[in-house]
Nucleic acid binder design. Structure first.
Lengths: 218, 218
DNA sequence: TAGATTGTTAATCGATTAACAATC
DNA sequence: TAGATTGTTAATCGATTAACAATC
């Protein structure tokens, strides 16, 4: 453990995932009307336990005050700072199919500190075109371009069959984090993070729940 | 606890989410070549603990045999059965924007036991059109149509501002499960499941990881 | 029989929740 | 001061991992 970690223990991944929820809720409030907000109110709005909210917020230096609560504006700034929404991470996307295309078109990522610069594909018919201002390059240019642009994040929206291949290519190009939209489990070396966006897992939870309900009804 | 639960304890949500991963991996294997598969092999392929794999597979009746392992074909069938990939859940999608459109175009859901029947929107220019064979209706038809078709799942791909409104409408129409692609936390009564597909949370994990790495490198 | 693997019981680990002191 | 709220320490809960008996 480094000295830094002794003083600022790393927050849990669960807490980290909740921080954007807090931020989203706080930003939805009317800043002119509400100056101060408390953990019980946040907890109620987001269906969370109020102790959990306090603990989460305490883990970033949120400056809450006993009796008073948290200063709304200050809390928003703390969260944005912690989540790094100020300094943009740059990404490339590989696989400009149906899903890839809609991610390229989506402009909301920039609110979360990520910007997709370019796309890659093998399909001649999309290479050279622009989608939402983002140029599509042949996959042969991937390594060179990523290295030159110092890209950190690779988004994989190809089919399952080519996912690992694309992943390896991205790693060769020096990418540090992968956002995986395929249902394949990617093999990466230690230190590289893979975030899986797994539709099948979500659907499994949904449909199991439905099945249970229909059984109860019978 | 019901008698049924005493005999077949409900599996944990974590296990449930991993089942599609097992299935995907097993299906990717060559059935002609591989007849039998063991937990250490599955675990290695998916970067999981082998005890976890065994426990997960034991929770559905997978019929593994000591010394031998699991019969590949039988295991696939057990998983598909448990996940209910045989009987289709029917869904509607509300919000035919950029993301909604690409979900309508995506045909992979049917492999996971879900079928989107129709879409809804307020935008006159999309109402009446078809996307991938799915008709788009005005939102005023939502309640009637969902009730008549006995729809179970509602997919919300509208903007955050109208998300709760749409959610309430879906609940009125008798929907039992909601797949929420907005970053809003939806309020639903007990017994309704909401599965959040939260891009902001995923990005928070990715970018925190990158920040830590760049610090270490300094 | 010996070796390999499953399935289960016990131990460990981590996250959530409860209790409570500190504080404005 | 009394009441409300934060932040932290302790207790609980649930999931993962380890140990091991059962078995082919």
């Amino acid at each position: 453990m480094t000295d830094n970690e002794k003083i600022n223990p790393p927050i849990s991944i669960q807490t980290l995932k909740r921080l954007p929820l807090y931020l989203g809720y706080l930003k939805s409030l009317d800043k002119d009307e509400i100056k101060i907000i408390s953990s019980p109110i946040i907890a109620k709005a987001l269906n969370l336990n109020e102790v959990q909210v306090r603990k989460d917020l305490a883990s970033i230096k949120s400056g809450g005050r006993p009796k008073t609560g948290y200063l709304l504006e200050k809390l928003i700034i703390s969260l944005e700072e912690y989540l790094g929404y100020g300094n943009m991470n740059e990404a490339v996307l590989v696989g400009v199919g149906c899903l890839g295309c809609s991610l390229l078109k989506y402009n909301g990522f920039e609110n979360y500190g990520m910007k997709i610069l370019v796309g890659f594909d093998v399909d001649e018919s999309v290479i050279g075109t622009e989608i939402n201002g983002k140029r599509i390059f042949p996959i042969s240019k991937l390594k060179d371009l990523c290295q030159r642009l110092h890209i950190n994040i690779g988004i994989i929206t190809v089919t399952g069959e080519s996912a690992q291949e694309v992943c390896d290519l991205l790693l060769e190009a020096g990418i540090q984090a992968i956002w995986n939209f395929t249902s394949i489990q990617l093999n990466v070396p230690d230190g590289i993070i893979v975030q899986n966006e797994n539709i099948a897992s979500s659907l499994a939870v949904l449909s199991k729940h439905l099945k249970k309900k229909s059984k109860v009804r019978k």
